[in-house]
Amino acid sequence: MEVDLKGSETTTPGRKSQSAVTGSARKVKDNAADWHNLILKWDRLNDEGSTMANKIVNLGFNKSSQKEMQVMMEGQDTSASSNSENAFENSRELEEECDKLLRVVDKMTRIVSKMEKLVSSEKGIIDLETFQYGTGGRQTPLFQTWPTSQFADVSSELYEAYKQELTLKRAILQELAHTTNPDLSMVYLSCWLYQPYTDDRAKLLLEGLLLETGHRPI
């Protein structure tokens, strides 16, 4: 399991303190690192996908403007063959970009399913604690102040946000290449890039989680 906080300004302060953590706390801490890594990966994929989505929209516009050109040039058959060649080239490129975007969405799907596993793991920890300490749970918090249930709450809230975002991305993927309305294409691109369902609250939740589990220095 990768617990290294790659790409973050503040990495885990030394392995010694980490290895001292065991049991549920170990698991919760690892999960927090996983959240961080998964979201980092998601953001990278989002940027990659954004470039592809832009290309798809531009290619789509080329296609429709070429159709118009062909209509305009009716009667002038001389250039028709090169035009259709162009259109063929265009469609091939469009298909390629759509395939690439599909692969990005597939990778995002895998990320979200990993997130789901994290949520069920947090729930498992709560069940374990109920078994160990009764319905009241443990008396002292695992780390600083959060009760164990809060880790599960944060996890499921983050998961819901990314799940919704993924659904939106799937819808964009389906519609993007078939939209002739340039304004709607633009809205799809904005939706892809700005991710309306992962808001500042999600960022705050993640930072809180990292702070509580000691990945970020207090």
Partner: peptide, 24 residues
């Protein structure tokens, strides 16, 4: 573009609060 598009009339109409969220 966002102002011109009525999200309710697009394939995105099933997404809750999308209009406000994207605007924000």
């Amino acid at each position: 573009a966002f102002q011109k598009v009525q999200i309710a009339n697009t394939p995105l109409h099933t997404f809750p609060d999308l209009h406000q969220r994207l605007h924000f």
